[in-house]
Amino acid sequence: MTLTLAFDIYGTLIDTRGVETTLTGMVGSDAAAVSRTWRDKQLEYAFRRGLMGRYQPFSECTRQALDFALAFHQHSLQADQRQQLLDCYQHLPAFTDALPALHSLQAEGYQLWAFSNGQATAVDTLLVNAGLRDCFAGIVSVDDVHSFKPDPKVYAHFLARTNAEAATTWLVSSNPFDVIGARSAGWQAAWIQRSAAVVFDPWELAPSQTLSALTELAAALKR
């Protein structure tokens, strides 16, 4: 039985905290707080737009979330500085466990796909810059269906695009909402708990596997 593996990108393979270096030069000691607010609002705006049926690409959610984060933390930046921060999203670093984990999974013969809220072109550029693009058969973006995870039609779209079956498809994500969405859609899902401080939502839909690093996934899939 060949498993299809759908990898979330932002926060799972790619470290969104990579913006903090550039932020530090602009907002000083508030960089970590601004980064957290930016990421939280980015996801919140995607959720809200999905529910309201007022879709805008993830890049627009990212831009608006940055504007909110700067205002919330009382920082005013020039337009070119804001654009510099947005451009960072094309050059975010991969987590150190990402490439070795993907290589080991490729060696096992699994089908690996990138599965993201981001537009396909943006994700492609990001993965190329992070040195991960060659690990994937392709990229599936929610942009094709104008909604966001965890909308059920997003997971159905992935299956249609990859000719996969729900029962043999695994989502790999560090985002609990994404794991719950996949489990609700009938998939298996591995939650990558990148910090012991992160708590999984106490819902009736639990991860199939909870792992502390991507490098544990190959062994977990054999269990």
Rank of each mutant, 00 (worst) to 15 (best):
residue 107 A to R: 10
residue 210 T to V: 04
residue 32 A to C: 12
residue 66 L to G: 07
residue 149 K to M: 00
residue 30 D to C: 08
residue 109 G to V: 02
residue 89 Y to G: 14
residue 124 D to L: 04
residue 62 T to M: 15
residue 68 F to C: 07
residue 33 A to Y: 04
residue 144 D to K: 06
residue 45 Y to A: 11
residue 150 P to T: 07
residue 74 Q to E: 15
residue 113 W to E: 01
residue 172 V to Y: 01
residue 90 Q to A: 11
residue 93 P to V: 07
residue 153 K to D: 12
residue 41 K to F: 10
residue 170 W to F: 15
residue 18 G to L: 02
residue 164 A to I: 03
residue 3 L to Y: 06
residue 33 A to M: 12
residue 169 T to K: 00
residue 71 A to M: 11
residue 31 A to T: 00
residue 54 R to F: 04
residue 42 Q to I: 09
residue 162 T to L: 05
residue 219 A to V: 03
residue 217 L to P: 08
residue 17 R to W: 05
residue 37 T to F: 09
residue 56 Q to T: 15
residue 101 A to P: 10
residue 189 A to G: 05
residue 115 F to V: 12
residue 223 R to K: 12
residue 88 C to T: 14
residue 165 E to I: 03
residue 145 V to G: 05
residue 159 L to S: 12
residue 141 S to Y: 08
residue 222 K to Q: 15
residue 86 L to P: 10
residue 42 Q to F: 09
residue 77 L to N: 10
residue 77 L to G: 08
residue 185 A to P: 09
residue 103 H to W: 06
residue 59 S to W: 13
residue 142 V to S: 11
residue 215 T to V: 02
residue 142 V to N: 07
residue 2 T to V: 13
residue 152 P to N: 03
residue 49 R to F: 04
residue 129 N to G: 08
residue 164 A to P: 08
residue 28 G to W: 06
residue 27 V to M: 06
residue 25 G to W: 02
residue 127 L to V: 04
residue 25 G to Y: 01
residue 2 T to D: 11
residue 152 P to M: 01
residue 187 W to S: 02
residue 114 A to D: 03
residue 44 E to N: 11
residue 67 D to C: 05
residue 182 A to R: 00
residue 32 A to V: 13
residue 136 F to T: 05
residue 31 A to N: 03
residue 200 F to V: 07
residue 148 F to H: 12
residue 220 A to S: 14
residue 213 A to G: 09
residue 201 D to H: 11
residue 76 S to H: 09
residue 126 L to R: 14
residue 56 Q to Y: 05
residue 68 F to Y: 15
residue 223 R to E: 10
residue 42 Q to H: 09
residue 3 L to P: 01
residue 92 L to T: 08
residue 211 L to T: 06
residue 169 T to D: 04
residue 161 R to G: 04
residue 145 V to N: 05
